[in-house]
Simulated scan of single mutants.
Amino acid sequence: MTSPIDTLNAFYDAERRYMAAGGAAAGASFDEMAATLDPAIELHQSPDLPWGGEYRGHEGFRDWSLKMSDAFDQLSVEDARFFVSGDTIVILCRLVTRARRSGQVHDAPMAQVVTVRNGRIAEFRPFYWHVPDYVAASGKAIRAA
């Protein structure tokens, strides 16, 4: 049986390859990421981000990945430390991104709360350090509330 951390690392690897392949703009396949996600996945992103909002199911997650890959051509979770309680993982890490338009690299602390059930990710809740920096790096405007 796959551990929750193994599942999460498989997602991170798939996400990194998706972004490195150019994301949706370059026709990168979402299938490898989808294989790590529960069909009813819930992703909760800060509404202050250009890609903010609530995303549900594989189609919702694919929609989020389109927005992220439009903003960034590289995305990597680095120096991850995992704290596991049952099916919940708290991750303290650095999120390193490179803006697609400007080439600007952004490296900042991040925390995530992830739920894994039956070997697949059921819920993601990321907490970004200083959201305005991500907005600026993405080249997008801050969303109106």
Rank of each mutant, 00 (worst) to 15 (best):
V90N: 09
R62A: 07
W64Q: 06
V131K: 05
W129N: 14
A24W: 03
H58M: 11
V96C: 13
Y18V: 00
M19D: 08
D6W: 08
I142S: 15
S85R: 04
T36G: 00
F124R: 02
E78Q: 13
A21V: 00
L75W: 07
A25V: 01
E32F: 03
G60M: 14
L66N: 13
D13Q: 11
H106G: 14
F124D: 01
H130E: 14
Y18R: 03
Y128W: 09
F11D: 04
E123N: 05
S46T: 07
L8H: 11
V135A: 11
G139K: 07
R120S: 11
A28T: 00
T7W: 03
P126E: 08
K67Y: 04
R143F: 01
H44K: 13
F11Q: 06
G23L: 03
S69C: 11
R98A: 03
A25Y: 00
S69R: 02
W129K: 12
R117G: 14
H44D: 11
A122E: 06
I121G: 00
M68T: 09
A24N: 12
L95R: 12
H106Y: 10
D31V: 04
I5Y: 06
V105D: 02
A10K: 14
A99N: 10
I89Q: 02
H106T: 14
V96T: 08
L92F: 07
A122D: 10
L43K: 06
H44V: 11
D63C: 08
G23K: 01
W51E: 14
A26Q: 07
P39S: 03
M33D: 05
I121R: 02
A136H: 09
P47H: 09
E54I: 11
G27W: 01
R94L: 06
D13E: 14
S76L: 05
R125G: 03
G86H: 06
L37D: 07
Q74F: 04
D38Q: 04
T115K: 10
Y128I: 07
W129M: 08
A21E: 10
R16Q: 05
I41S: 00
I142C: 12
A40I: 01
I89D: 09
S85P: 03
D31Q: 12
Y134F: 15
D38S: 11
S85I: 02
Y128E: 08
M33G: 02
S3H: 03
A40F: 02
V113Q: 10
D79Q: 15
L43R: 12
D107G: 04
R101S: 15
A25P: 14
F61E: 06
C93E: 05
L66I: 05
